[in-house]
Simulated scan of single mutants.
Amino acid sequence: MITIYRSIAALTSAASSVGVLAQSTASTSACSTSITPSYAAPSVAAGYEARLIATNLTKPRSVLFDANGNLLVVQQGKGIVSLNLTDNGGACLSVGTSHDVILDSSDADQILHKLTHGIALSRDGRTLYASSPEAVFSWAYDPASSRNSSGPSVIVNNMNTSDHTTRTLLLPNRAPGMLVVTRGSTSNLDLETLDVSTGHSQVKAFNLTNTTATYNFDTDGLLMGWGLRNEVGVAEEPLTGGIWGVENSVDNLMRDGQDIHQNNPGEELNFLGYVNGTTSPEQGTNFGYPTCYAAWNVSAIPNNTGLQVGSQFAIGTPNATFNDTLCAERAAPRLTFQAHMAPLDILFNRNGTAAWVTFHGSWQAIRYRC
């Protein structure tokens, strides 16, 4: 589920629908046009209401409003669709018209692989970016017609992996012309990540104003951080321009021969530094994966002396090469969430005083909470 910052937030599910979450007025009124969901209504905090506004989509992953208020939706394996919304007040939105903007193609010269998740628009709203497991693409875009006016250009490539293929995109407002791209691990426990030159499990930034050729993710770009298993959500804190990410951590964790995966490790909120020239000790550093993780339930971790919630600890059987002392030198999360919550996105309010994080849970959480 992804949120878009407005008084009304647009939400996507991994199934086939898009909804909105809005701050409600003193009394909630029925919408004149609404879609009845086939599932139970979500539970929301007091002062909010949630409504379904679009169905029959193909695995909607990310959403973004263009300059004319059209809602662009990435449909995994299909492309990007534009939804023209009718605002009937409050959370009462409905789709007036819709049309495909980008359709995936089997032609390798057009789309190297299916679009999966990432989407971004330039500050002037006239360049559209989207990502596949292999590459980041751009198209000239006309917000008046909500259509692309060019074929795709490949901006970044050489990112393909067999797992964790989201490739989230961010165009920071405080660093115009820079594009942040995330790339997860190639498996649950990706030992290739130990070598920074592989490009696995990293977040990088690329200069869009000073490029003469396609960037190679492995060798090019500004390294924001590595040892990041799957930083699905990234966001810019609006006042300072700091870049933050939320991470899906490892499954099936063992420590000293004991299975501790039900309540460890914790999911992470990480500070990745800046792309606007401000320096930070975290930027470009190792965040621990695949050998070090953030503790959540400390009591369930064998030999836990000195550990607390958020402490980096070593998996497996600690030894002279990988141990808790070494892990303490890795960049620790700024905030640790309950294990297996699977954070998917992070969004700041306009003045940077609050942030929202969306979670979907995982097979681990479902299995042990039935």
Rank of each mutant, 00 (worst) to 15 (best):
S299I: 08
T211E: 14
V309F: 03
E268N: 09
Q76F: 08
R334D: 01
G96S: 15
R350G: 03
Y141G: 10
D163P: 06
V101H: 00
S38I: 03
L222W: 04
V73L: 11
T3W: 14
A365C: 03
A130Q: 10
R51V: 01
G352I: 09
A213S: 13
N323Y: 05
D142P: 04
E267R: 08
F359Q: 03
V275Q: 05
N68P: 09
P302V: 07
A46V: 06
V203E: 05
G47L: 03
A140G: 13
S132M: 02
R255H: 01
A314W: 00
D190Q: 08
T321F: 02
M224I: 00
A108F: 06
W226D: 06
S197G: 02
D109H: 06
K78W: 00
A135I: 02
F137P: 14
G242S: 12
V63E: 15
G79L: 09
D100I: 15
L85E: 02
I301R: 11
P60L: 12
N323L: 08
R6G: 14
S105C: 02
P152Q: 01
F271Q: 02
S197N: 04
T3Y: 14
G79M: 07
G19K: 03
D324R: 07
I155Q: 04
H200Q: 10
V234S: 10
Y5S: 14
Q308H: 07
I346M: 11
T212M: 10
S94L: 15
E267K: 00
A26Q: 15
T86P: 03
